[in-house]
Each structure stands twice: as structure tokens, then as C-alpha cells.
């Protein structure tokens, strides 16, 4: 229907959808929190003010103060660094190892493929929380170890997606045509297979970034991540929990922040054309 007549008076307008703009805004803001927290929070996230514990939100403390009199807003803002760094590390681990394994399996085929895929099956057969807990037992508690544990779990997802993408692209006619016009294996891989397979891998990375933040906050909540008094979102929720009846906002706000960031990551991933596995 290429030759369709445009109806007069209707001007096609192309704005990015509102949700997506919002998602990028959220991610941008949180990123800024992580890089220059001082710009957003004037109060000290670690040093409490004696006698000012558990205050309700006010102009001075927009999100109130916690059980040690620390400004909650400052703690949430400074917590971004911990969470984003952790998620970044986790996604990098998954992306690097998973994609390498997947590319290898997809491009080589045969026994390499079979071995990698059985490994992926195995990693997927163990519930992800248990798998990351096992890694944490091996490495010990701490924020970096938690991030590695979360990344380890996502290796299987990246491997499976990148393998299937490579297989899809390899079967594509334009790849065959590239071989047909005399392309060498590596040249074709570099010019055609990689760029076309990486789009979905990138989308998965965005999705996994959100999942990693979620998983890290869970580990933090359970007490396996960053040790107190580090401001970490999951830990903030755990700390606030003790004052739930009197100061519910201490628990509520960090959770809302996590929710917003994860939701944004999902939305961005969708806009990148995620092919879910």
C-alpha cells in the first residue's frame, strides 16, 4: 500500500512516546545521582543528627530521617551509586561471558554448541536466587561479590539469546549473499552477523540492568550485599522495616525508587526491540 493517498488535514506527528521519555528521564536522574550525589543531597548520608531520629518528611528533610537521625533523601540519592555500580558490574559480567559463550556456540556449532547449551540449561535449572546465594557463599558477603553473583546468574540468559540471534542472522539471506560475493568468514561475521545480532543483546542488557538492580536490592535486603552503614536501596528498606508502624515512609521511598528504575529499564529495553527468551 505504498501508493496510498494521505488524507488532507492530518499531519503525521512523530514524538517519542511519553512513557519512553519518562523512562529515560528516570534513568538519567538516577545516573546523575550516582555520579554527583552532592548536587542533589546537601545532607550527610552517613552521619546522623542526634535527637532528630525518625522525623516525618519536612522541608529540611523531604523524606524524613531514619532511626539514627540521618537524612533519608541523602541516603536514597547516595544509594544510587551502590546500586548502579553493582548492576553495571553484574550486567558486564553476564554480557561479556554470556555473549562470548553464545557467539562461540552459535558460530562454531557442533560439540561446542552442545556443551555450551547444556551448561546454559544447567544454570537455568537452578533457581536464580539460590544460584547467586551459592556464589556468595563461595566469594563471601559484600557489594562486589553480590554483583558478581547476580552477573553469574545472567550469563545463561545472555548466552542463550546471543546464540539464537547468531543462528538467526547466520541463516539470513544477506549473510549467505555476503559469502556468495567472496566474503571471508571473519569479515562476514564482523560486517553482518555481529551488528545484526547485537541489537537484541543490547536490549537484553537493558532489561537485565533492571533485573540486576532488583536482584541486588533483594540480596541487600537479606543482608548479603553492602554492609551497613552503606546506603544501599535494599538495605534501606530492611532498616526502615523496623520502624514500619511509626515511620512507613522510610520503607516506602527506596522501594518506589527501585520500582521506578526497574520499570524504566524494562521500557527502554522494549524500545530497543527486546526479543525475550
Amino acid at each position: 500500500m505504498s501508493g496510498a493517498n494521505p488524507v488532507a488535514g492530518v499531519v503525521p506527528v512523530r514524538l517519542p512516546p511519553l512513557g519512553l521519555t519518562l523512562a529515560w528521564a528516570v534513568v538519567g536522574l538516577v545516573l546523575a545521582w550516582a555520579v554527583v550525589p552532592g548536587l542533589f543531597a546537601w545532607q550527610d548520608p552517613l552521619q546522623g543528627i542526634a535527637g532528630r531520629q525518625l522525623e516525618a518528611p519536612s522541608l529540611e528533610h523531604p523524606l524524613g530521617t531514619d532511626g539514627l537521625g540521618r537524612d533519608m533523601l541523602a541516603r536514597v540519592i547516595h544509594g544510587a551509586r551502590e546500586s548502579l555500580l553493582g548492576a553495571f558490574l553484574a550486567v558486564s559480567v553476564g554480557l561479556v561471558f554470556g555473549t562470548t559463550l553464545g557467539l562461540l556456540a552459535g558460530a562454531r556449532g557442533g560439540i561446542v554448541d552442545a556443551a555450551v547449551m547444556r551448561l546454559v540449561d544447567t544454570l537455568l535449572a537452578i533457581p536464580s536466587l539460590l544460584l547467586s546465594l551459592s556464589v556468595i557463599i563461595l566469594l563471601g558477603f559484600g557489594s562486589i561479590n553480590a554483583a558478581i553473583a547476580v552477573g553469574f546468574v545472567s550469563v545463561a540468559h545472555f548466552a542463550r539469546l546471543s546464540r539464537s540471534e547468531v543462528l538467526r542472522v547466520r541463516r539470513a539471506e544477506y549473510v549467505e549473499a555476503a559469502f556468495g560475493s567472496g566474503g571471508r568468514f571473519l569479515a562476514v561475521l564482523w560486517r553482518h552477523v555481529l551488528p545484526n545480532a547485537l541489537t537484541s543483546v543490547l536490549a537484553l542488557a537493558a532489561l537485565q540492568f533492571g533485573s540486576a538492580i532488583l536482584a541486588l536490592s533483594t540480596l541487600g535486603f537479606l543482608g548479603y550485599g553492602a554492609p551497613p552503614p552503606t546506603p544501599e536501596w535494599g538495605l534501606l528498606i530492611a532498616e526502615g522495616r523496623d520502624f514500619l508502624a511509626t515511620a512507613w515512609w522510610l520503607t516506602c521511598t527506596p522501594g518506589v525508587v527501585v520500582l521506578a528504575v526497574v520499570l524504566s529499564a524494562e521500557r527502554i529495553s522494549r524500545s530497543l526491540g527486546a526479543r525475550r527468551t
Binding site: G210, L214, S217, T218, F221, L222, G234, I237, A238, R241, L244, T251, P254, G255, V258, L259, V262, L263, E266
Partner: peptide
């Protein structure tokens, strides 16, 4: 996107 533990609380 909802953290399970937070939802419970």
C-alpha cells in the same frame, strides 16, 4: 519491577 520483599512489607 516490584521488589518482592518491599511489596510484602
Amino acid at each position: 519491577a516490584v521488589p518482592v520483599f518491599w511489596l510484602g512489607i
